[in-house]
Design a protein around this nucleic acid. Structure first.
Length: 362
DNA sequence: TCTGTATGGGGAA
DNA sequence: TCCCCCTACAGAT
């Protein structure tokens, strides 16, 4: 499922920060981004946001003035964002524009404030005049009934899904559609989840991200937010005592107990992963010492690209370590060193709350 | 300085 | 099915 909760929180963030703010001028794109320019310039406009699954839509709405009434009225523009691995929104002073800000909306006042789309890895994308991607499935958080009705049962998942109807048979039916899931409902859902090992898998796809959305008042700021509450909520991902295996795509699956019959036969934990020939070929940095092969030239090409990128972007001061307190049952190894290690490795990913599950079912 | 890890999604094979 | 698009950062060397 990944980023659902995070994208939704991003839309809430935009609406909160941009409420009452008048934006003005052109939308500016960084030079390094390969995403399309946003041909929108307006003397005065407002910004609002909505989310659906793993997409966020910004709507730029021009404000009519006497001047513009005489001219042709400018139309609103939707821009649909997908965050890739590292996208998020910030709202800052103009002189505090974040590194890797790739699309910027400037407020009308001086000095300006800026709503910026920030994306270090640049895997994210945006589409001017965009629409919700038509071939995506229903939003598991806010189109739960649709999500539930037309899911073809993948054969490997048959055992898990067997016996599930198209209807949600759980007693707690509050968190549907655009209803607001209150804390009481979350608690109820959690009790059901904990109580029944065979809790409805489809429902968990809905309740787990909704729990993240409703974790409470820490706000949305992927660079500065306090993730301790979220980290305490995690039950499996990077939690001491849990197991992990790489699947055939090299993706790490976290779980506890028996991995099940479909576990990759030669799978290893991430740390024990043996370096393969494919890894070597993929690793352009190690080619520096080699001699004149085709892959080397490809590697060098990449290096040049990397150097180019670094030239365009300023260095970031090192981040300070964040503390991690996991409020789950006591574990054997609680040494600060161990905790620091797992925390830092996971930090960047764990903060991407939506892609995490409390209990991975595989 | 080098290496491994994070893993969404487009597109080629 | 797999490559590729990218950067940040911790830990190893």
């Amino acid at each position: 499922m990944p980023e659902g909760p995070e994208l939704h929180l991003a839309s809430l963030f935009v609406n909160k920060m941009c409420e009452g703010v008048l934006f003005s001028g052109p939308v500016r794109k960084s030079e390094v981004s390969k995403n399309p320019d946003v041909a929108f310039a307006c003397d005065a406009y407002r910004i609002s946001a909505a989310s659906r699954g793993k997409e966020v839509k910004l709507t730029l709405t021009p404000i009519k003035s006497d001047d513009t009434k005489a001219k042709e009225a400018q139309q609103p523009m939707d821009i649909v964002f997908r965050f890739g691995m590292s996208g998020f929104f910030r709202f800052t002073a103009e002189d505090e524009l974040p590194k890797h800000a790739h699309l910027c909306f400037y407020s009308k006042e001086k000095p300006s404030r800026v709503l910026s789309y920030v994306d270090a890895r640049r895997f994210g994308s945006w589409q001017p005049h965009g629409t919700w991607q038509p071939d995506r499935g229903p939003c598991i958080m806010f189109e739960y009934e649709s999500f539930r009705s037309n899911i073809p049962p993948f054969v490997p998942a048959r055992i898990v899904l067997e016996g599930l109807g198209s209807d949600d048979t759980c007693k707690d039916k509050k968190p549907l559609k655009n209803d607001i899931l209150n804390r009481k409902a979350v608690t109820t859902a959690r009790k059901i989840t904990m109580k029944d090992e065979h809790a409805d898998l489809l429902r968990l796809c809905h309740t787990v991200p909704m729990e993240v959305v409703h974790l409470g008042g820490k706000g949305y700021d992927p660079e500065k937010a306090d993730y301790s509450e979220f980290e305490a909520w995690l039950q499996c991902y990077y939690v001491d005592g849990m197991k992990s295996i790489r699947d055939h795509n090299g993706r790490t699956i976290w779980f506890k107990g028996d991995p099940g019959p479909m576990a990759p036969k030669d799978s290893k934990s991430p740390k024990a992963k043996k370096r393969t020939k494919k890894d070597e070929e993929h690793d352009y940095t190690s080619k520096k010492k080699g001699g004149g092969t085709q892959s080397e030239s490809a590697g060098m090409k990449k290096e040049i690209k990397v150097a180019k990128t670094k030239k365009n972007e300023q260095a970031t001061p090192p981040r300070t370590a964040k503390s991690l307190k996991v409020n789950t049952p006591p574990r054997e190894d609680k040494s600060p060193a161990r905790r620091r290690k797992t925390t830092k490795l996971a930090e960047g990913s764990r903060r991407r709350s939506g892609r995490l599950t409390r209990q991975t079912v595989k």
